[in-house]
Design a protein around this nucleic acid. Structure first.
Lengths: 195, 195, 195, 195
DNA sequence: ATCTAAGCGAGACGGTACGTCACGTCTTGGG
DNA sequence: CCCAAGACGTGACGTACCGTCTCGCTTAGAT
């Protein structure tokens, strides 16, 4: 008896809210995203926002989630190593923008256990990591990568440095950095193979 | 006209503020650190806090900076590789605590260009990275690490994954992870040396 | 766009604020009336007060205005001179209370051109003066008061001395003073009529 | 043994403080006169001010007291009635200035029992009233004013209306008003002498 | 000719209150 | 039952002044 009663929620309002939230996020950063500002600029009542998201951080994550990060999926070539290099560079180009810092801040500030947080983590941050896993598995099957590696560690070795620099800001993040990471992870630094 | 005139700032107040801020930080997290709470608990007026730090984030950074992260400096042994492994594990044990998340959040949220931010970055986050650099240079001089590596990239390969997991929380951070990182960075993942 | 939209202002809050402000005014005087104290004691948020009045002085005036000064209206007898005497004594008894000094201070300190100030002036201070004017007109029509007097000057002669003593405090204000004023204004001080 | 020891108080500082206080009083009114502003503008330390006056109101009164109200003493002519008229007009011209409102506010706000308050009251406000008393006594001795009047009431009838208008602001204060007051007080308003 | 007590400008101290902002909730009239 | 508007109680913000308290430095009478 409580299914379709009353006026349905307005899709128009929902979209206006997400759009405005995204704009404010890009203009002023996460810390300045206030529900009042979104409501005012989107021409929407505050309760309408709270009906959909429980606070400003959730709304911010939702706003970022609503925008496809990068739909341009990777072309798979005959060389998985080339594929990895290109994928890493693509990740860098996505996150080295203004949006990268916002995403990093948001990730740092979010409640780690909320449903939206998990979605955010998996779809925005860890997506690239899983793409990398696919490429590495392919590489292993072509004999380019050893089978005894600890895959999770290697993946963190590849993508960790990007977010490290994003977080700390101690060095620039460009495509050369991407190529250098891939090279270093492949080669190792030992004078001779430790195996 | 601005030399030592007027009553000097109270060292007692400064210390009480930093101490209280640190306590509140550990109890409630960065987001809950309010100037009013610090003032109230430290028995200090709000203006005294604002005279020394311009907002709650700055105070938080200062409070963390005031505590030596870990002064237990590393014993240098005959094996730089062992030294590196132990150092990485030590970094992990320092940052995998409650304080680690606070530090990460703070780093993410800080104005990147403020003086305090830079000090925080260099003394709290990048200190370990520079220790690592020393160890690697020693390793090179003993012929254990190749001389043609891109040192900055390799350092990010070692320490990036730790902060990556700290930030994203997708896998656990323990000493085994530390040993795995060092191993992987040494060995590389290529089936045979690319050189 | 500014008609009856949104939640209407709470009459309950408005009344609680005015009541509390009046109480504090009587307890501590105008100088001690703080918005925080009113908010706290009335169980009301500070913004609610500021939404209705722009500062403590305005609130204080509003609080005094909200209380009918003295509704006990004057009984009109056959003798306007008696009426005037009784009215002046009534004014004295109203203003020689604690509240009289508050009102005087408030009048002195108020912005002379604000809307509330004008209402305060007309309804609290000058009301008695206008009552006096009615009585004097009646007196003139009965031939008890000359028709060539400057009414505004005479009214100030009657009521001015009361507020003068209230303001300066150089002599006591009692009903005898009221009778003396009326007598003196009637008789004049000249040895013989100047006309 | 505790008489003249130590550095004597600086007369220069005292004067600078009073001068600055007076200026600020004229610029911004009593409510805006802050100790900090005086100290800052006079180039004086706050304790130096507090050593001489216990709060801003006292300082304000002192600043007004330090300036002679009007030293141009009245010329005594053969006609005391003329003298009174001129004296009342002089009082009006002194108090109808900006300074008049400040003085009124200050009088209203002052602690009635403090020593400085009394001096202020007697020297600034009641001085004119006493001058009036002298003139009236002279008038009586010349047979121009009846001897059975209640002198204090009559004096309040003359000077009260001026401060009444100053306080309430309901009508303008000019020399015509002064002449009208004197005329009305002399003549009375009764159709025929009540005696 | 020192010594020393008090005043000096400066400015930080613990406070109180300010007036504002945003929170998350509640209450209108209207669709 | 949702919508926009906007008021509600709450709590923290950063600022202005309060009146007091050091600082290091005169300044001048008492030693």
């Amino acid at each position: 008896m409580e299914k379709g009663r009353g006026r349905p929620r307005s899709e128009r309002a929902r979209e206006a809210i997400l759009k405005t939230a995204y704009e404010l996020l890009m203009e002023d950063g996460v810390g300045r995203l206030t529900i009042e500002a979104v409501a005012g600029r989107a021409g929407v009542g505050k309760p309408t926002i709270y009906r959909n998201w429980s606070n400003a951080r959730e709304l911010a994550m939702a706003a970022l989630l609503a925008r496809p990060v990068l739909e341009q999926s990777l072309i798979e070539t005959a060389s998985p190593i080339d594929d990895l290099r290109r994928q890493v560079c693509q990740v860098i180009s996505v996150f080295s923008s203004l949006r990268g810092r916002q995403v990093t801040q948001m990730m740092a500030a979010s409640e780690p256990d909320s449903e939206l947080s998990k979605a955010f983590r998996n779809r925005i941050i860890l997506k690239s990591r899983e793409e990398g896993r696919d490429i590495l598995i392919r590489s292993q099957s072509q004999g380019l990568v050893r089978r005894d590696i600890d895959m999770d560690v290697v993946l963190d070795l590849i993508y960790g440095p990007i977010f490290y620099r994003l977080l700390v800001g101690h060095a620039k993040i460009d495509t050369q950095f991407g190529r250098d990471i891939v090279a270093a992870v492949f080669e190792g630094m030992a004078t001779e193979p430790a195996r």
